[in-house]
Amino acid sequence: MTSFLDRLRNPDHTGERRCWPCTVTNAVLLGLACVGLARRRSRTLAAALGVGGVAAIALRGYFVPFTPRFAPQLTQRLPGNVFHADAGEDREQRHAPDSPGSLGGETDEETGEAVLQSLLERGVVVADGETLYLAEDFRDEWREKVQALRGRDDRGLADALRESAPEETVTEIVEQDGGRFGEAERWFVVSDGSGDPAREQWLTRPIAVAEIGAVRALADSTSLSATRRAQSAGALRMLLETCPVCDGPVEETTEVECCGGPGGTRADAPDDVLACGDCGSRLYTFQ
């Protein structure tokens, strides 16, 4: 049975999704407010404010109104990278990029327009004015492929990535420290085997599952070439409505690891991203 405290608690900003820098900031502001109130008005009122503020921070994540709205914009103006525990630490020579890559690699504007036109002509994507959405038949087929991939172990998923790539590729499984909650992050690296970082694409497991599923669905339902299928997979992620690994809702948010956001490593200008509202997996980065 759900307790009264559980009903008050906001899971978006507490537990594993708690933003500790914002929590500390709220606690400091609460302390200052209590001290000021005790000196100017009443210690009783200050104590009441302290108890209420601590309860709000514990159960809701913050007590300063609208903290989740202004905190990400505020933190990007601060010097350094105070919102990440690994700020200023030396990284290994080979490390994951700021944003996950795609099986089809980076595409320029001309290629992106050609990919979209191909998807529209084949009925994979439907346009309603300026809004794009997936055709229902393709969405169902893509979901079916994704569900079949979820249970694969890492090696099996890496093999599926290699099979879905447009050319002969090398796939690696790379594990690095520095995840959002301090855990190791596992990446699937697709490359030409040259060792050149510019020729590598680093994919997270959710993105790998989504893109392999998209490539397979496109192979079954269209006559697109292998190269075009791989290029299309990254674009199709922009139209995801549910997470490929947990079926949670996909929401537009920011990459800043603040107030329950999906996390990130850049402090200069946080990107807008699509991320799972349940597990926090980042699924698409808007450029």
Rank of each mutant, 00 (worst) to 15 (best):
F4K: 01
F4M: 07
D6M: 15
D6E: 15
R9Q: 10
R9Y: 05
D12T: 01
R17N: 13
R17H: 14
C19Y: 01
P21M: 06
C22S: 08
C22I: 00
T23V: 02
T23N: 03
T25V: 10
V28T: 09
L29Q: 00
C34T: 09
R40N: 09
R43I: 05
T44P: 00
A46F: 12
A46S: 14
V51L: 13
G53T: 11
V54L: 14
V54T: 10
A58H: 07
T67N: 08
P68W: 04
A71K: 07
Q73A: 14
Q76N: 02
R77E: 12
L78E: 12
P79I: 08
N81G: 05
V82H: 04
A87K: 01
E89M: 14
D90T: 12
D98N: 07
G105I: 08
E106W: 11
E109D: 07
E109Q: 00
E110A: 15
G112F: 01
Q117R: 13
S118R: 02
L119G: 05
E121C: 03
G123Y: 08
A127I: 02
D128R: 04
T131R: 07
Y133R: 09
E141G: 04
L149R: 06
R150L: 06
G151I: 02
G151V: 09
R152H: 14
D153P: 02
R155C: 01
G156F: 07
G156E: 12
A160F: 07
A160I: 11
S164A: 15
S164P: 00
E167L: 10
T169M: 11
T169R: 11
I173Y: 14
V174Q: 14
E175M: 04
G178W: 07
G179N: 08
G179R: 10
G182F: 06
E183C: 02
V190G: 12
D192I: 06
G193P: 06
A198V: 03
R199G: 09
P206I: 15
I207T: 09
G213D: 01
A214N: 05
R216S: 15
A217M: 15
L218M: 11
A219M: 10
R228H: 09
Q231M: 13
A233R: 00
A235H: 12
E241A: 06
T242D: 15
V245N: 02
V245K: 03
V245W: 02
C246W: 01
D247E: 14
G248C: 08
V250F: 08
E251A: 08
E251D: 12
E255I: 05
E257G: 11
G260V: 00
G264N: 03
D272I: 06
D272C: 03
L274A: 03
R282Q: 12
T285H: 11
F286R: 07
